[in-house]
Nucleic acid binder design. Structure first.
Length: 197
DNA sequence: AACAAATACAACCGCATTGGT
DNA sequence: CACCAATGCGGTTGTATTTGT
């Protein structure tokens, strides 16, 4: 298999691990001054011993000024659960419907908190209910196969998402950050109504 | 107080996709 | 059309912090 992970194969060794406050400051200052561009250039020009990929991740998940931070509100939590039941593990798409939240954040939240909670409630109510939220998505119904491993999730995406998108385009018209959550709910309502069995 | 286990979160890795040449 | 570099995504791992004993 071709190794195209060029960031990791650079001739000069790149730093790994946690970001120091100094590195954060360098990246932040550079982004504020120059805006987003080619990440490998940003890494170089900001004077960071990091690969572009690492800079991108740090910016998106931590430094971006529009990040919300802090604990998820009950409303957000509800929204995540609902969106996950529709979209499955498409964290970036779920994040797009939650203003100020990142895919990584939501993924972590799901894996550490919600998943566990759902598992507990499932085991307390039904012994055969083994994490259905992860592997029985709406698309299983739409596509008809019912199979839903993570890889197949990606492969099947092109098969069913376009149908859903055509009928329920995202984002809805006149979207603003303050109305995102509200419109997320109406989007959910329309999709679940249309595609529930 | 010391240690282990559990938890939460940050970051990395591999792969797919995209766009330029 | 083939190739390559850059980017984006989701899974996984690593690490700091918190909680329990």
């Amino acid at each position: 298999m071709r190794n195209n992970d060029n960031d990791n194969n650079n001739n000069n060794v790149k730093k790994k691990g946690l970001w120091s406050p100094e590195e954060d400051e360098k990246l932040m200052n550079f982004m504020v001054r120059n805006g987003q561009g080619c990440w490998s250039d940003i890494a170089r020009n900001a004077g960071l011993q990091r690969c572009g990929k690492s800079c991108r991740l740090r910016w998106i998940n931590y430094l971006r000024p529009d990040l919300k931070r802090g604990a998820f509100s009950p409303q957000e939590e509800h929204l995540i659960i609902h969106l996950h039941s529709i979209l499955g593990n498409r964290w970036s798409q779920i994040a797009a419907r939650l203003p100020g939240r990142t895919d990584n954040e939501i993924k972590n939240f799901w894996n550490s908190t919600i998943k566990k909670r759902l598992k507990n409630t499932a085991t307390s109510s039904s012994p055969n209910n083994s994490d259905s939220s992860d592997h029985t998505h709406l698309k299983a119904n739409v596509v008809g196969g019912g199979r839903c491993s993570c890889k197949s999730t990606r492969q099947l995406e092109s098969a069913w998402i376009p149908h859903l998108r055509r009928a329920h385009p995202w984002p809805p018209n006149s979207e603003t950050p303050s109305t995102l959550i509200t419109t997320s709910w109406s989007w959910i309502s329309s999709t679940t109504t249309a595609y529930s069995t």
